[in-house]
Nucleic acid binder design. Structure first.
Length: 824
RNA sequence: GCGGGUGUGGCGGAACGGCAGACGCGCCAGACUUAGGAUCUGGUGGGCUUCCCCCGUGGGGGUUCAAAUCCCCCCACCCGCACCA
């Protein structure tokens, strides 16, 4: 038989699969469905190894589930809006639409080379009007329900990308995309009211046992729920108050000063601030700091007194009001109470500026001395110096003080969140236009649904200025008011691309639908996604936004479920020489070159074999060659036998001990591979079990076949081998399956089931330990009872030698496993 | 600082509390060959007085007949969050 010509084989089957279209699926209520989804890629131009890993993992599961009888939805598409396309336009004069379309067709070709079992009829491309029309429609639904709104706010601005960013896109004070430090700008922007869903996003995590804890914890921290108390401190001599937020109402009596953030709005009334010039100078100094420096925890705490005083609502004491750099406007109320004895930051600040330290919580053991403290006491304790609350246990005191303040109207209980509303407008061209019109008479008017989509015009000017290119396009800008018909102007901002990717999984269920974004009948059948697979870098952004959207759509009656992804698998990165593959390091391995050199089956096999999916994977050319060798081994094994086996039709029989052992191993492998894929995603150990089976078959051929050939048995073994390997390496198995005389595709075959009877071995090796050390091993019939086993063990020469002159204290026996003799 | 994770041969990695190192890479030896960077077979954690034994899963303690695995303390690295009030 011929050598393993992977190139011809892969091309042949990819073409056949496409022609026959048997990865195409439709809703079928008579069969159990399985929706398998991998995060769709941004069409950057070329597939990278991370994609290959992501989609290889997904394809194994899709093919496996299909063979297990599920109706599998396995789609692919393109997250096609985004900045790189626009930068290409600015830098190289290519239109973003053309650049994107070219990249998509290239990457689609690369994906198809991998032999992935997608239903390509369902392909979704977010930058096409038939898709973004529905993104706009969904925006309008949110708008009509008060979940999309416009407000002027200090927002994150990336000077390099020339656009605003969501909080989630700012990392260490810099733009996550280009690392440029972000600046604050006061701008009118569109927001989605995700904070309304903070509690439900949090609670929903508990209903997602199929998600990694790591991701759930990250989302939990991001939402940052923090129940506490807001307290209004009256400013002495005015009718103004300063509202602070605290999680420690029990320490209010220990307040010795208040601190405002430099940007606090109260300071705008500078006329009332006695130390006006000092405060202004301080504000300017802080404002000059870059966002990166400001975000640093190392920043030295500094502040100035305002000369204002506030009254403690519990003690009636008069405390000074300061401005300091360690208080930020973004969190809470932008003002905090200073309790140096019980908060480390406050203590450091108080020591620096000589502010008093007042102990109001005493630890159970040694009493605190205010003058000597260098560490704030933050644990619970007994309340002291706290007027009516003295003597209370501080945990109870929290409630008592909160009740007291609330009852007197000096404050209120409040739950604070770290989560901010989602800023979705971008001053860029290559995104879905926000469907809003501004009319001089009617004001802000939503585009009527019948007028959707608001087309993105092709003819615009690309310049790296701060204005959206759409603002330079008169034909786009000028329109008429849908309400009064008079001249009006369109919103020129586009939507964050994360809006597009927050619902694409629903569109796959009803692609190309011109009347609805998705059909209820289809989503009811297919949703939720049973298994979602992607990189952990989306743990917060995409995965939280998509959950938010799903909940909103659920509330609007558009979908049944309110969580989109039942199970989540976060794959590790693909590394080279211990580091991330990157252009700057020059260590990129191109999937296309690997496929050209070894074939898609080898590339897939290596990437699945080299590490379990959650872990980072170290790329190794030698490892790839090993997998290539293995496939050649499979090829030679099967093709050398194929002539003798293809015509065999007799039922398998077991003639010899070797036969029985081979059959046992075949079924043990079936069991292991099935469990490794289904229960644990341990593709690496599944592959290794298949390798062992191949080794065993070689050995069988060497030692048994020439003497006592058993074609029926071997045929069954080889066919199971091919079936087990089919999800991993679809082309070679399809070719060999055909060679074995099958007319129908291996990928439409049924997954093998392990036979209990075949699994049962006759004999088993039992280990003998003496004082916990392995000293002997013996072969006994399976199921030998404890007593018989022990008798057998004690008859062993080696054991006797070890026991000579010793007394047996105890024997622990685990039938079919081991015997441990404890002696002295 | 808080939260999460990882730590096992030369390397990637296996081990329901029960034989540490499956499988693969690399290396060594042999076979077949004109040849081998093909293929097949065998070996391969370290030590040693070499077929006997000792040591060995980041380090130290503990539980147990038995610990890579469970508990406590510590170290290193990675990821996320971070003046969060």
């Amino acid at each position: 038989m011929e050598r393993y010509h992977f190139k011809q084989i892969e091309a042949k089957w990819q073409q056949k699969w496409q022609e026959q279209g048997f990865y195409q699926v439709g809703a079928d209520p008579s069969r159990p469905k399985y929706y398998l989804l991998e995060m769709f890629p941004y069409p950057s131009g070329d597939l990278h190894m991370g994609h290959v890993r992501n989609y290889s993992i997904g394809d194994v599961l899709a093919r496996f589930k299909r063979m297990r009888g599920f109706n599998v939805l396995h789609p692919m598409g393109w997250d096609a809006f985004g900045l790189p396309a626009e930068n290409a336009a600015i830098n190289r004069g290519v239109h973003p639409a053309d650049w994107t379309a070219r990249n998509i067709s290239n990457m689609r070709r690369q994906l198809q080379q991998l032999g992935l079992s997608y239903d390509w009829r369902r392909e979704v491309t977010t930058c096409l009007p038939d898709y973004y029309r529905w993104t706009q429609w969904l925006f309008l639904q949110l708008y009509h329900h008060g979940l999309a709104y416009k407000k002027k706010a200090p927002v994150n601005w990336c000077p390099s990308c020339a656009t605003v960013l969501a909080n989630e896109q700012v990392v260490d004070g810099a733009c996550e995309r280009c690392d440029t430090p972000v600046t604050k700008r006061e701008l009118e922007q569109w927001f989605f009211r995700i904070t309304d869903y903070a509690d439900r996003l949090l609670a929903g995590l508990d209903r997602l046992p199929g998600w990694p804890d790591k991701v759930k914890v990250m989302q939990e921290n991001w939402i940052g729920k923090s129940p506490g108390l807001e307290i209004d401190f009256v400013l002495e001599g005015t009718d103004r108050t300063i509202t602070v937020f605290t999680t420690r109402p029990d320490t209010v009596a220990g307040v010795t000063y208040l601190v405002l953030a430099p940007e606090h709005e109260l300071l705008a009334f500078l006329g009332e601030v006695p130390n006006r010039s000092q405060v202004e100078a301080f504000q300017e100094r802080v404002a000059r700091l870059s966002s990166v420096d400001r975000a640093s925890a190392e920043l030295e705490k500094e502040g100035v007194p305002t000369g204002l005083y506030a009254v403690n609502p519990v003690t009636g004491e008069k405390v000074p009001v300061w401005v300091a750099n360690y208080v930020v406007t973004e969190y809470g109320t932008g003002a905090v109470m200073g309790v140096p004895a019980h908060d480390q930051r406050d203590l450091e600040f108080a020591r620096k500026y000589g502010l008093p330290v007042k102990v109001v919580i005493q630890p159970p053991a040694t009493p605190l001395e205010p003058e000597a403290m260098t560490q704030a006491y933050t644990e619970p304790g007994l309340m002291v110096n706290s007027g009516p609350f003295a003597g209370l246990e501080s945990e109870k005191g929290k409630e008592a003080v909160a009740d007291f303040i609330a009852a007197r109207g000096q404050g209120r209980r409040r739950v604070n969140y770290r989560l901010r509303d989602w800023l979705i407008s971008r001053q860029r061209y290559w995104g879905a236009p926000i469907p809003i019109i501004y009319c001089p008479d009617c004001g802000e008017v939503p585009v009527p649904e019948a007028d959707l989509p608001v087309f993105l015009p092709r003819e615009v000017v690309f310049k790296p200025t701060g204005d959206s290119p759409l603002a330079t396009c008169a034909a786009f800008m000028h329109t008429t008011c849908p309400q009064c018909g008079r001249p009006a102007r369109r919103e020129t901002d586009t939507m964050d691309t994360f809006v597009c990717s927050s619902w694409y999984f629903l569109r796959y269920t009803s692609p190309g639908d011109g009347r609805e974004p998705f059909t209820r009948q289809e989503t009811d059948y297919w949703m939720p996604v049973d298994q979602y697979i992607g990189g952990v870098e989306h743990a917060i952004l995409h995965l939280m936004y998509a959950r938010f959207f799903m909940k909103v759509m659920h509330d609007l009656g558009l979908v049944l479920d309110d969580e989109p992804f039942t199970n989540l698998l976060t794959q590790g990165m693909v590394l080279k020489d211990g580091g991330k593959m990157s252009k700057s390091k020059g260590n990129i391995v191109s999937p296309e070159e690997i496929i050209a050199a070894y074939g898609a089956d080898t590339a897939r096999l290596f990437i699945l074999f080299a590490a379990p999916p959650e872990r980072d994977l170290e790329w190794s050319e030698a490892g790839v060659e090993g997998c290539y060798r293995f496939l050649n081994r499979v090829w030679r094994l099967v093709s050398s036998w194929q002539g003798e086996l293809a015509e065999v039709s007799a039922a398998e029989t077991v003639k010899t001990k070797a036969d029985r052992e081979l059959r046992r191993q075949v079924h043990a492998t079936v069991k292991k591979v099935t469990e490794d894929i289904e229960l644990r995603f341990n593709f690496n150990t599944a592959v290794s079990a298949i390798m062992e089976l191949v080794n065993a078959l070689y050995q069988y051929r060497e030692e048994v076949w020439s003497r006592e050939p058993n074609p029926a048995l071997v045929k069954a073994a080889v066919e199971k081998l091919l079936l087990l390997l089919a999800p991993f390496t679809p082309h070679i198995t399809e070719e060999l399956w055909e060679a074995m005389g099958h007319r129908e595709s291996i990928h439409l075959a049924t997954w093998p089931v392990a036979d209990q009877e075949a699994l049962a071995a006759e004999e088993v090796t039992v280990v003998v330990q003496i004082n916990g050390k392995v000293r002997d091993r013996l072969t006994v019939p399976v199921g030998l009872r404890e007593q018989a086993l022990e008798e057998e063990v004690l008859r062993r020469e080696r054991v006797a030698a070890y026991l000579a002159g010793k007394e047996i204290v105890k024997m622990v026996s685990v039938p079919d496993r081991l015997v441990n003799i404890v002696c002295r």
